[in-house]
Every structure is written in C-alpha cells, then in structure tokens.
Computed example of a mutant assay.
Amino acid sequence: MSKTIGSGACGEVKLAFVKSTCKKVAVKVISKKRFRMSTSSDNEPPISVDTEIEILKKLNHPCIIRIENFFDSVDSYYIVLELMEGGELFDRVVTSTRLQEPTAKLYFYQMLLAVQYLHENGVIHRDLKPENVLLSSTTEECCVKITDFGQSKILGEASLMRTLCGTPTYLAPEILNTAGTAGYSNAVDCWSLGVILFVCLSGYPPFSEQNGKIPLKNQITEGKYTFIPGAWEHVSKPALDLVKRLLVVNPDERLTTKEALEHPWLQDNNMKSVAQKLMNDIVHSMPPPLTQKPVSRKRAHEGEQEASTSKYSEQFTAATEKRAKM
C-alpha cells in the first residue's frame, strides 16, 4: 500500500503494488462504520457489500473499471481495482477549461457504451459525474472507464430504486421531485450523462448554486440552464442537440443510451474506429503524469452535498465569468 490518490464519503483510494509482480493497482478502502452510516437511510433491503462486489466482478466491459479482488477485514472493506494513470475526467476538464469537441465525442461515446452495458445487466449507476470517469493515460486519445459503484444497486425484475442519492448537480429531476420516495428508472443515468456532456463541451455546469436567482433544485426540476454564447460558439449544432435531448425533464421523453448512440453527432466512423482500438488495447501506454496539480476536493455525502456542489461550481466560475462578458 502506498500514497492516497483519492478520497470519498466512506473512505479513500490508495496506490498499491502486487508483491509478486510489482503491478500497480488502486485499492479502495471503505470504513465499515462510515459505510453503515451512509446506507442507514436506504428504504430498500440492504444488499451485502460482498454480494454486490461479486456481481460487479462479473461485469466485463472495456469502459467499466475492473474489480480485481476484494478483502473484508474487521474495520474496513478493501476493493482492488485496475489503476487508471490518466486520473479523473474532472481534472482533465478543469485543466483544459473545456474539452475539444472531437475529444468530448470520443470520451462520451465510450461512456454511453459502458452505461448501456450496465443497464442491459440490470445495474443503474446513480452517481455518474466527471469524478467517476477515469482516463487510461494522459494522452488526449485514451480509453475512459466508469468507476465508483458505491451508489449503484442491482435491480430485480420489478424493483426500482427509491433511494435519494448522488451528487446534486448531476441528480435527475425525478429524484428531486419525489425526494427519493417514488420509483425511478435507469433514465436517471441518461440525465447525468447529459450534464457531463454539457460540462465537457462548455467547461461549466448547466445547474449551479452560482446562479443565485434560482435555487439549484428548481433549476434542475424545471430544466432551466443557460447557454453562455462564448462557451458554445465553437460547439456544433448536433452536439448541442444531443445535450438538449438528454436534459429533458420528463424521463419518458429523455433519450435512452441506445437512442443516444444512434444520434447523428455520434455517427462518426473515424471516432468509432479510434474508440474500438483504444478499448481493445489491453496494455495502455502510460506517459508521465501531468505536472499540473490536481483539483483537491472531497466527494459529497449527505449534509456535505450542498457545500461540495458549491465548491465544484467554483472551479468553473472564472471561465464562466470571462465568457459571460463576451
């Protein structure tokens, strides 16, 4: 076990090495005490961590982080994950101000394939955000992988999730409208994907507490977001159209992952060819880490959510204000 490379509501992620091979991995250490506190308000019968880990270990997709091992000690759970040297999508967006559209398209296509696979296997992520999208390397063309299934639930045939969870900025309207007391479907992930695509293309979040005129909850439940001309002038109309079709308040009218993959913006054979090559490349090339200091933050949890969301939005404030003056 080596240095800490990330932190969350229930624990931290550490860099580690397999003794026999010196292979680098990431180990997520979850405090059992903090985990019990975070799940105590769940309205559904709890699923044991080891059962959920076993199910997730069976998932096999190039754009979903691979769980390599799992250990259960007296005080903590240890989840051994493949290491992604490129860090989080969040840091890539903040460092670059925003992604170039071809890069955003390459990353988003892979995200859609991963989430489609999850949904086909009865898993809803429920906490999709740039912090939970990892990059295989520091190069612009790289494989991306969805991670952090701490909020996900395995779905039975007739069950829908009723737990209010996730990061407020990325929560779907139907979750906020019912305060988590009514059932909701995998369409919540498609809303979150729409928010992620908005951030990647523009460099600022569509819903933010920085907008003092309308409370964050109302912005989301009413689908009120603002396109700042300076941030979107170089974004194509098809890309903008896909964002709008994902950020639809009514989940029945929102694009599914399958429909999103069929959208004109993603009918790019060259991009798909690159994506397939990256996804099939088992051994990723690993350039030296970025010299920029990563953005420091903790992930939101219960009462911390609003403060965390505000801090997250502040990362985009300078760029947003600059564009607003254009």
Rank of each mutant, 00 (worst) to 15 (best):
P168G: 13
I79L: 15
D50M: 11
K14L: 10
M37N: 11
L164M: 11
N60F: 00
L81W: 01
G156Y: 14
P229Y: 00
P46E: 03
N69R: 01
A26T: 05
M271A: 14
I196K: 05
G212E: 12
Y107I: 09
W265T: 03
Q267W: 04
N43R: 15
V144E: 06
K28G: 09
Y117Q: 10
A172C: 07
T320C: 09
S192W: 00
K224Y: 12
A179L: 09
D148F: 02
K105G: 06
G122V: 08
H263G: 07
L242I: 02
K224E: 11
S137C: 02
D42Q: 14
Q110K: 13
L155T: 04
E85M: 03
S31E: 13
T317I: 10
N211D: 13
G223D: 11
P173I: 02
S2P: 00
K325E: 05
I196R: 07
I47E: 12
L160W: 10
F70T: 11
V195G: 03
L290W: 00
K311T: 05
I196L: 07
D75W: 03
Q267Y: 06
L83N: 09
R245K: 15
A300L: 11
V18Q: 05
W265S: 00
C10Q: 01
M84E: 13
S41R: 15
T138A: 14
A307R: 13
N269Q: 12
V123T: 02
A114V: 08
L242T: 03
E314S: 09
P294K: 14
L15D: 01
V18K: 15
K237I: 03
T309E: 13
V199K: 00
R297N: 04
S136N: 04
A172P: 06
P287D: 08
G223E: 10
T167A: 13
L247K: 02
T103Q: 11
T163R: 13
R36H: 08
I55Q: 14
E314D: 08
Y184E: 04
E174I: 00
K129W: 01
G6Y: 04
E140L: 06
Q110C: 08
D42R: 10
N280Y: 01
D148K: 01
L112M: 11
Y109C: 12
A318L: 04
V195C: 13
M326I: 04
A182K: 15
E321D: 03
A16S: 06
K258Y: 08
P206K: 06
T95R: 12
G156I: 02
L171M: 15
G303M: 14
